[in-house]
Amino acid sequence: MRKYNIPHTFEFKSIIELYAQWIKDGTLKVNSDWNKDLKIKFTVQDPCNIGRKIGTNKIVDDLRFVVKAVVGEENFVDMVPNRSNNYCCGGGGGALQGGHTEQRRAYGKVKFDQIIETGAKYVITPCHNCHAQIEDMCHHYGGNYHTLHLWTIICLAMGVLGENERTYLGPDLAEFGLDIEGGIQ
């Protein structure tokens, strides 16, 4: 809209800013108690579009606030470098549909190594392209992490994640919080 000078009166926001705002003002009640004893480690992929490309760390800092609120600060492991200095996962710019698969995967190896270095079992990817690329890296290079949408872990922490909404969870969390009938506890 900026690029084409299209006039508009609405405000443009990332859902991540809203998650953070709702958690801060108490609208959204979440906590990380579920992971206190499990101590499952999480890292997060910073999408370039909400980090470096907006020229401020505001949204990627909100992202960390939200993730720490739902998995526990002590269970969050950041990649290095991160935030506005992150490495692109290699799935951006249309690369997933650009046809240069071998090159895309070589590009993503930088990100894959960064993820492995954190030792985290889960990578939270708030962007669909990053999700697809990081999952593909895991299969291609034989990683042992799982790639999650952000909403999955928020709902898990709120105890409202349905049985059919767990495609990307590993076996350790696949049935977490479900009662024996498959409903939500």
Binding site: C48, Y87, G92, G93, A95, G98, H100, Q103
Partner: peptide, 8 residues
Amino acid sequence: WVCTMCGR
């Protein structure tokens, strides 16, 4: 087409 225009 390999560069993702990530801006780094």
